[in-house]
Amino acid sequence: MNRARRSLTAEAAAHAILIAYTIIALFPVVLILINSFKDRRAIFQAPMAPPTPESLSLIGYATVLEQGNFALYFMNSLTVTVLALVLVLLLGAMAAFALAEYRFFGNALMGLYLAIGIMIPIRLGTVGILEMMVATGLVNTRTALVLVYTANGLPLCVFILSEFMRNVSKDLKDAARIDGLSEYTIFFRIVLPLVRPAMATVAVFTMIPIWNDLWFPLILAPGEAVKTITLGTQVFIGQFVTNWNAVLAGLALAILPVLALYLVFSRQLIRGITSGAVK
């Protein structure tokens, strides 16, 4: 009885702290979103109020859609992110399988070599990367971004997935060998389906930094036709810095798709993180 009562107080305190922090976490996002739907006067006079019928205004969105190429930027980001993600997951899983499954000369060394990429940010190689992209004529192409993000995503992917693949039952793979399956079939039909949860986690860890990156789009692909949404928003806001309606609408447009995706997939994502994929 005593214990139950005490844990009730503790629980109330826990809720109070968590609610307070949740408000801190969400407030700026909510503030941007509600104000993006208001006219200029309402933004300044009553910034905390949600849009009312009188103050409702979509002028900011109109400016953004007229002046900015947001649809194009969005497609660019989507293309780059999806292509890089597919390459990271496919090639990373293949390499992880090779490292986890086969004994060969230099296996451990290869693992270490790939692990360098986890420790060293790829941005430090920017000078070399830009020179290479200039030399191969890939500057201002989405291909350049896909290549960079793939290279950057592979080490962590290989590291996490090879841990998981080591846990796939050895007996199962041997049973498949006795049944005459080729090594490729064993990988694609037996092992890949079994590490799908880990792949989901890796996908999230790979995808978010790519989508949100500013550095490489700024340096490798600043051209209007290949701008990503992050760079596009940054440039747009820089140009319209005094037009609060436009700035707020631009921010809201960049937030909303990510937020929507996150709300749909948050359950899997959090399960992925807490499943111990990363310790």
């Binding site: 039952s169 007996d171 041997d174 060998r177 006795i178 389906p193």
Partner: peptide, 27 residues
């Protein structure tokens, strides 16, 4: 292994989790 005329039963059963019993046998 597949062409040695042997069959093996494993400690951990090693059944294909995505196939039913008949599918496991037929593969």
């Amino acid at each position: 292994p597949a062409r040695r005329g042997i069959a093996m039963v494993f400690q951990s059963y090693a059944l294909y989790p995505h196939l039913d019993v008949a599918g496991n046998w037929a593969l």
